[in-house]
């Protein structure tokens, strides 16, 4: 039997050093809700597990002086839900993070793990993309930042360089009149995986959209930023024509597969339906509703 080493470093430098030195034989452990399942199924056989939860920065939630937020990569869904301010500012992102896995694993499941698992159906990713979140990564060659949408490379693959670890997410300051939402289609009500997931972030001024971003999941090899959908909403007052155009942009962005979780035709149609529904919720929030 192969031996597994387990490390729980207190500093990021130690973690990066050990992770890089293992040269691909190591896996990062945040909540473990993907990693442990993969190990049990024989899909992952790491020689080294680097637990990042002992590193303070990884589990911190900070409201920044400019009004933005920094969320450590290993912050659990439950921790984020308990933050007094985060859910008020980014209700859509919080909803999405709280849908990772199921209620039972929310005390462990983290947005960093969800992103690095690189599933096209990861729930938090479309909402983070819509929010315009940027990830900080640290590797042997130091720190760098990249937009969330640049992280996934394909199912189970990321664009992180060897030895790089996602440290956290930075969400931008929120102008007045902003709101976000995340919706996913699952056949059940719980314990399921997104057939389509869609996040929207809007800013409205006097009823006119001044900022709009749309993230779309489970319809392509990676979660997508659908710029055309955001552009279709920009400058509109969310009239039917703008919503139709944004929905059409979402459908056009779909490159899904037929699989056990949904058909191409169904996923494509649902992308448009969710766009309209999520925009309605985000707009209501932007205008002061809940």
């Amino acid at each position: 039997m192969a031996e597994i080493r387990y490390l729980a470093p207190r500093t990021l430098d130690e973690a990066v050093g050990a992770f890089a030195a293992a040269q691909g034989a190591a896996r990062i452990l945040a909540g473990g809700t993907d990693l442990l399942v993969q190990m049990r199924n024989g899909l992952a056989k790491p020689g080294l597990i680097v637990d990042i939860k002992k590193i303070a920065e990884m589990t911190e939630i900070a409201e920044l002086p400019d009004g933005g937020f920094r969320i450590g990569a290993a912050v659990s869904g439950a921790m984020l839900a308990e933050h007094p301010r985060f859910g008020q500012v980014w209700p859509g992102v919080l909803e999405a993070v709280n849908l990772i896995g199921s209620k039972q694993v929310q005390g462990r499941a983290s947005p960093g793990g969800n992103l690095c698992n690189a599933s096209p159906a990861g729930d938090s990713v479309p909402a983070m993309i819509a929010a315009g979140a940027v990830v900080t990564v640290q590797g042997p060659e130091g720190r760098r930042q990249m937009p969330v949408e640049a992280v996934p490379a394909g199912p189970g693959r990321t664009n992180l360089r060897p030895g790089e670890i996602v440290v956290g997410f930075t969400l931008p300051p929120r102008p007045a009149g902003s709101g976000d939402a995340y919706l996913r289609m699952i056949p059940r009500t719980e314990m399921d995986i997104a057939v389509v997931g869609l996040g929207v972030s809007l800013t409205l001024a006097g009823g006119t959209v001044t900022h709009a971003r749309v993230g779309l999941g489970a319809v392509a090899p990676t979660v997508l930023l659908v710029e055309e959908a955001g552009n279709a909403l920009l400058g509109s007052r969310l009239e039917e024509a703008a919503l139709d155009a944004a929905a059409a942009a979402c459908r056009a962005a779909c490159r899904p597969i037929n699989d056990k979780r949904g058909t191409i035709a169904y996923r494509t149609k649902v992308a448009g339906v969710l766009l309209k529904r999520a925009v309605a919720i985000a707009a209501q929030r932007a205008q002061g509703g809940n």
Partner: peptide, 16 residues
């Protein structure tokens, strides 16, 4: 068999 798990073999859960 392509859905040999409770994730993809969709039995109703309580909230359904």
């Amino acid at each position: 068999l392509d859905n040999a798990s409770f994730l993809d073999y969709r039995m109703p859960v309580c909230s359904d």
